[in-house]
């Protein structure tokens, strides 16, 4: 399984939740994972019920079996000052640059520099080793920008390498690109079983492939139970309403006659949704990618919910060594 797991998805599909659950799932059995946030939303901290994350790797959760999840909110400005310090030992001059607006310029206005810094920092964490020459993190999981921007975000290094044709930024961009285009990386797309997210997922995969970025899995999130199918419903709508009313009464429901119509109508909507979901599953199956499915958590996602989702991911093979459903590589 790739060591750098990038999680993207259409807005509203729950990619931050999925990234957090994946970080937990991959941290089992004493492993250490790092989840990085690049959009400054502090969604990770909220999910884990922690204080806002600083620009510093800190332990945010302990996984079953003693594993650890670290988290880092990457700040482009601080990352740039890091680099300046690393390459030029700038010290106080860095602050002067900031005062002049140069740092602001470089991280918000200069095209791509911001993205290079963000992906660069994540790739550095992927490759970092300790004194025993072991990787510091077994896996790095990125809560990445949404599907519509992911290819550009990851591929921006190529572009910057072209714009800045020499110098450390150029070299940095090229080094990052080597990691991103290798089997060490897998880009996952989170979707719902709805038409627009599925369409966007298909488009996103095509873009990623065109840019030669390694596509990992399609992760279907918030899957709702299918309680009744179309056949049962057809039976219901055909002449059995009186029987249903009687059965309701027998089951202890009062005033059942008035309830049959709304109950059957709710079932009709449900059946319609199930049929639409089936179509979307067919579309997803046509993409030919491995997948994970995560259930809709009724009570919203808190720490217990994350554990539940992580367990679901493990059951489906996440973090089960190199065998099983190894993604992306």
């Amino acid at each position: 399984m790739s060591r750098f797991q990038v999680v993207s998805g259409k807005g509203g599909t729950g990619k931050t939740t999925v990234a957090a659950a994946l970080a937990l799932a991959l941290a089992t059995e004493g492993r250490r994972t790092l989840i990085v946030e690049v959009e400054g939303r502090q969604g990770i901290a909220q999910l884990f019920g922690a204080d806002s994350l600083p620009y510093e790797e800190r332990r945010i959760a302990v996984a079953p079996g003693g594993g650890e999840v670290y988290a880092l909110a990457i700040d482009a400005e601080l990352a740039l000052l890091d680099y300046l310090q690393m390459f030029y030992k700038l010290g106080g001059a860095g602050r002067a640059l900031k005062k002049l607006g140069a740092i602001d310029f470089a991280t918000t206005i200069a095209p791509g520099v911001r993205d290079v810094l963000l992906t660069g920092k994540a790739c550095e964490a992927v490759r970092r080793k300790d004194r025993q020459n072991r990787f510091v993190y077994d896996y790095v999981i990125m809560d990445a920008p949404p599907t519509g921007r992911i290819t550009r975000f990851l591929n921006v290094n190529d572009e910057v390498a072209g714009l800045a044709r020499i110098g450390p930024i150029h070299n940095q961009a090229q080094a990052v690109m080597r990691v991103l285009k290798s089997p060490e990386t897998a880009v996952h797309l989170v979707t719902l079983l709805e038409e627009m997210p599925v369409q966007e997922t298909a488009d996103g995969i095509a873009e990623l492939r065109a840019a030669e970025l390694p596509v990992g899995r399609v992760i279907v999130n918030m899957v709702r139970p299918q309680l009744l199918d179309g056949d049962a419903l057809r039976t219901a709508s055909g002449g059995r309403r009186k029987e249903i009313a009687k059965t309701l009464t027998r089951a202890g429901v009062t005033g059942s006659a008035a309830l049959v119509r709304p109950l059957v109508e709710q079932a009709a909507e449900h059946a319609q949704r199930v049929a639409l979901e089936r179509e979307q599953r067919t579309v997803l199956a046509g993409l030919g990618l491995p997948g994970y499915e995560l259930p809709l958590l009724g009570e919203g996602v808190d720490r217990a919910g994350l554990d539940e989702l992580a367990a679901a991911l493990r059951e489906q093979g996440a973090g089960q060594g190199e065998s099983g459903r190894g993604a992306g590589s």
């Binding site: 399609v218 279907v220 899957v223 709702r224 139970p225 299918q226 309680l227 009744l228 199918d229 056949d231 049962a232 039976t235 199930v274 979901e277 089936r278 599953r281 067919t282 997803l284 199956a285 993409l287 491995p290 997948g291 994970y292 499915e293 259930p295 679901a312 059951e315 489906q316 093979g317």
Partner: peptide, 18 residues
């Protein structure tokens, strides 16, 4: 189980249609 389905028939089975 006629007509009734358990939640997400086969979660790990990729995206096979129901």
């Amino acid at each position: 189980k006629a007509g009734l389905r358990e939640p997400a028939d086969s979660p790990a089975a990729g995206h096979a249609p129901a």
